[in-house]
Simulated scan of single mutants.
Amino acid sequence: MLSTLEVDIRPGSGIGMFELGSSLWAVLTMLRSLQHLFPQVEVKFDAENASTTPVILHLRPHFDLLFSGYHQHLHTICLRKITDLHPPIILRYKDSVICSGGDPLVKVQITRAFGPTYPGDELRYPGVWFSFEDDAINESLKGGMPHTGPDQRSKEVKRIIVTQKETQSGEHDALDEVIPCPVMFGDISRAIIKIHHGIVLHFFAPSSSPLHICLGETTAQDLNIDLGPPSRVYYKEDGRMAIHSPNPQLDEDSYSNDYFYNYFHHGIDFLISGQTHRVRKIILHSNVPGSPLFQHYKRCPWELEGRPEDDEDDTPPRMRLSDKFEAISHFLSPRDPPPQSMVLDRTDDDDTITLPSPVSRLYGYSGVILEVNEASQVVTVTLF
């Protein structure tokens, strides 16, 4: 027997279990526990620009979820095929059921529940609109008063779209980032990388102060206080990179007792010294769709900071995760070609992962290592 999908419409906020502003990582994590309702989840993205363009989740047959291109937050929710019984839908608004049991949702039911609105081909209200077409969204509003005959009253709603409410500056474009809202509070809005020093984390939250994490200074206890307990503590067992060290035995011994603090919900790993319990390395994850580490970590919106022109320069140059590797490499080493790379195939340790392009390359610079995929997108940044 199919489970019934009971959802409520919250204009400008969400539908059912989906809340505008939620991260792609959080939504996909939630969907893993809801396979009885959503057995088919399709992730769509532009493979050549996966770090910069929106991601769409198709949850057949009812939902399409659009996530913003940079911060990967839920921007738009589309509910469709309301009469499809696989699974059946019960649709609520406030305390009233407006549709259930596979019955069509018609125009007059919407106007009774939501009241009058402006004329047009769709019924548009702040934060929600109802379309009578199955085709791609028609963003234009056509003038003229709608007909009020019986055929118009019984027009069937094909799609319900929930977005954030329009701001004073006008309508919120589908390619814009999500306007900060409570569900985003506590997420990282910017992670400024200061090479050889550490990172500065800025958060989506009212009157939130930046958090400075310094290499060789910040302790494991500091991280527990400032970021909370890690998602996982992982003791370092992989010493394969030591073979590339001039003193491999010394390097392997030096790292033998180290451990990782994994903050999957922030997209950051910290390597902690087993001797001093201070931060030795910081790894920031881009959560690029199609890469082997996709969905292991939430996207960390990092920015690489360059040297300021002088001591009074408050706006030093920066490169962002949306920039291609070639531009970032020139930024880090403008006078030299990219350094020789090492090949990394993260699927070597997991036979269950099959990807069309599983191989990435590691490029080392002074104080930083970039992991780059075949589309020249930086998927991880390691600071040491």
Score class of each variant (00 low, 15 high):
residue 178 V to H: 04
residue 162 V to K: 05
residue 181 C to T: 15
residue 151 D to Y: 05
residue 169 S to P: 00
residue 161 I to T: 15
residue 155 K to H: 05
residue 184 M to T: 06
residue 155 K to D: 10
residue 170 G to L: 02
residue 158 K to R: 15
residue 165 K to E: 15
residue 151 D to V: 08
residue 164 Q to P: 07
residue 143 G to H: 04
residue 165 K to C: 10
residue 153 R to G: 03
residue 163 T to N: 10
residue 183 V to E: 13
residue 164 Q to T: 05
residue 151 D to N: 10
residue 143 G to L: 07
residue 158 K to F: 02
residue 158 K to S: 07
residue 152 Q to Y: 13
residue 164 Q to L: 01
residue 173 D to C: 05
residue 144 G to L: 05
residue 167 T to N: 07
residue 156 E to R: 07
residue 154 S to I: 05
residue 174 A to G: 01
residue 166 E to G: 14
residue 141 L to H: 08
residue 146 P to V: 02
residue 144 G to D: 11
residue 146 P to I: 01
residue 148 T to N: 10
residue 147 H to C: 12
residue 170 G to W: 02
residue 170 G to H: 03
residue 172 H to D: 11
residue 144 G to E: 08
residue 184 M to C: 04
residue 172 H to L: 14
residue 181 C to W: 02
residue 163 T to P: 00
residue 145 M to W: 08
residue 162 V to T: 13
residue 180 P to C: 02
residue 176 D to R: 01
residue 182 P to D: 08
residue 145 M to V: 12
residue 143 G to D: 12
residue 159 R to L: 05
residue 169 S to V: 08
residue 154 S to E: 14
residue 159 R to S: 09
residue 142 K to W: 07
residue 171 E to F: 01
residue 146 P to Q: 03
residue 164 Q to N: 06
residue 156 E to I: 15
residue 143 G to E: 11
residue 167 T to D: 09
residue 145 M to I: 10
